[in-house]
Each structure stands twice: as structure tokens, then as C-alpha cells.
Design a protein around this nucleic acid. Structure first.
Lengths: 110, 110
DNA sequence: ATATTTGTTCTACAAAAGAGAGCAAAAGAA
DNA sequence: TTCTTTTGCTCTCTTTTGTAGAACAAATAT
């Protein structure tokens, strides 16, 4: 793919990471994805995408300590990098620009 | 992919078709893509994507008569379908919703 | 005629999307 | 302690998208 272009699913996952802030980890991201978009995804798909985002430098990750809930084991938590935010903004600018030029696309306020 | 989700490049190309309106055809779309997004693409990439969009019912196409310019041969012109517009709106709604929840994403007016 | 310009189609391959089995660790139950 | 349940990640595989460019077609200009 041409360099730094975010794939569609990559972009959604990156946005979810941004929405979750501190508590962005695999299963939580999967749940939030479904809650926010109504779209379900296999856990493997989410992790594969997170790994790709990390390789591209759009997120960073680290392991947490385990919690004291039932089965609460360590999580790999992700956070967006400055590069990731920049990529999101660029993508957003392109879309907003194009939307404004397509008739009947119901452009409202963001 | 899960049913009706638009890929990243598919979405951009579909938007360009919408922007161009009546005069959306292969080479013109390629040029408009570059003009609008600064992104270049091989002509084969554009046509492959247009064909996929048509298979999904997001665009329709038909051949024009040739023009009288130098080399002006027949073009296959594309137009967005209602289904295509619907897909764009859905995609837009998801993004606008997520953008509004990510801090520091510089959400402005659309 | 044949060279040039404008266009599309065909063929390949790389990257992203997606699914799910399998493995690991922690906590509770016995 | 040992077994079961819950939470969570990693590994492997297949399908869809993304991308490029050569090949081919038709029209105009010389």
C-alpha cells in the first residue's frame, strides 16, 4: 500500500483507541467497536490490526499489572502516538473536503 | 470483508465520482484524485476499484459517444447509485461520531 | 498509412481485513 | 492443592482490497 495511508479498519481501530484513552486493550477495543459502530469483529482481527498500527508507529503499547477481578490477567494497553493523531487528522481533512463537494451528502456540523 | 463496508480507497474513489458528477470516468477520476488529495494512483488501480464498486452496486456505468478532441474516444462514465450514497453517509456518520469523542482531534465545522 | 493521443481491459502481486483455534495466566471452587 | 472458569493474547490461514503496469482499442493528425 502506498506508504502511510491508513486502511479503513485500521482507521476505525485507531479512533477507538483514541476514544478509550487509558484503557485501550484488545477485548475492550472489540467491545467498544461493537458499541460505537454496531460492527462485530473477531478478536484476532483486532489484534492483527493493532499490531500493524504499532509497526507503523501510530500506537504504542505496554503490559499492565493484573487486576483483581475474576481472571483479571495482564493486558496489553495501547495508546495513540502523535504520528497516529496526525494520520487521523490528515484523513479527516481529506474526507471533510470531499464531503463538502458531493451534493446531497447531508453535510451537517461535526 | 464484512458485507457492505467500504474499503479506504473504494471510499475515496466513490467520493470522487460524487464530486465529478456527470463527467466521472477513469482517467478523469485519476486526475481529480491527485488534484483533491495529492495522492497519485496507477490507472489500473482506479479501474479495478471502479469495477469492484460497480459489482457492489455503489456505482453504475455506461459508454459515451466519442468526442471530437484529439484522440477523444468513448469513455465509460460512472455515477453513484442511491446505495453508494447511503454507504457514504453511513461511513461519514461513524467517523463524525468517533471524531467527536477523541480529544485534541481539532474537530471543526464541516 | 502510421504516429500520437485518449481510454479501457487484463494480469499479477502485495497488503489489509477477517476468522477462529490455541495457549497462558489469574481467581474461585472443590 | 487441583480443576474449572474467566480474561486475554498469539498464531495461522483465507478472502478482499489496494496497487501497478502492460496490452489493447479507437479516434485524430500528419
Amino acid at each position: 500500500m502506498k506508504g502511510d495511508v491508513l486502511g479503513e479498519f485500521e482507521e476505525i481501530i485507531l479512533l477507538i483507541v483514541g476514544v478509550l484513552g487509558q484503557d485501550a486493550y484488545g477485548l475492550g477495543i472489540r467491545d467498544e467497536l461493537e458499541k460505537q459502530t454496531g460492527r462485530s469483529a473477531a478478536i484476532g482481527a483486532v489484534h492483527a490490526t493493532l499490531n500493524r498500527l504499532q509497526e507503523k508507529g501510530y500506537v504504542e503499547s505496554g503490559m499492565t499489572e493484573g487486576t483483581q477481578e475474576r481472571g483479571g490477567r495482564r493486558k496489553r494497553v495501547f495508546q495513540m502516538t502523535g504520528l497516529g493523531k496526525k494520520a487521523l487528522i490528515e484523513s479527516k481533512d481529506v474526507r471533510v473536503n470531499l464531503w463538502s463537494q458531493v451534493p446531497d451528502l447531508n453535510i451537517g456540523k461535526v
